[in-house]
Amino acid sequence: MELLAELNSPVMYLICGGIILFVSVICIVFAVRAYRAGRQLGIDESKMKRVITASTTFAVLPSIGILLGVIALSGSLGTPWPWLRLSVIGALHYETQVAEAASEAAGIGGLSIANMTPEAFATIAFLMSLCIMWGMVLVIFNGEAYSRRLVSPSHPEKGGKKKKSGMSGFGDTAMTAMFIGLVSAYIASYIGTIVSGNGMFSFQGSWLPLAVAVTSAAAMGVFIYIKNRTGADWVDSFSVAGSMLTAMAAAIFFGRLIG
């Protein structure tokens, strides 16, 4: 418990909070530059404001979910380190798995404050940083070359000629398809969990994630219907967050049904 007090000490908050503050400044710098550039390029300011509103409402609920990840990890790693990891670079799905593997390799069995040592903590912290840095490494060394290779229809001199036929216009379709693939993988995993999650064709797995996803999809359908009927663009800004909130509220009800 003495170690947990050290992991929650002001020094730890200072180290982790300092990095988070630095990242916040980076976000503000990029946002201000983009907004100014948008204005210069003639992008409608009301569109940019809608993007900011929509992204704000969109991000609130997942952020609360991420906060719960911080709470979940704070029992074994203290609060400041999970706070840093989940504010910057990390993802809820990854952190626990990596921390668990590092705990085993550090010889403390599993992720638990009861067996935690200062060396094990430093090892876990370093592995968490090391495992999930590849996107950053690639974007540093290859980001410019890679993104410049992508075709911009507004800039034919940048490669539009060779894309005149065949792949032209497929970029957006591919992005939508990629998203269909992403969503399908997760929804299929929820169905797979029900059918074979607790033994092949046992139908004993939790149906809660699928029920939540279906509820959210139904709520989204209602938002789309309202938008199509009324033509109110503002509905778009709140449709995803609203659907999620409806489904999450339903999850509480479903949870009670399961008991």
Partner: peptide, 8 residues
């Protein structure tokens, strides 16, 4: 169930 809510 934040993630299923999002993907739905």
């Amino acid at each position: 169930n934040v993630v299923p809510a999002l993907f739905g």
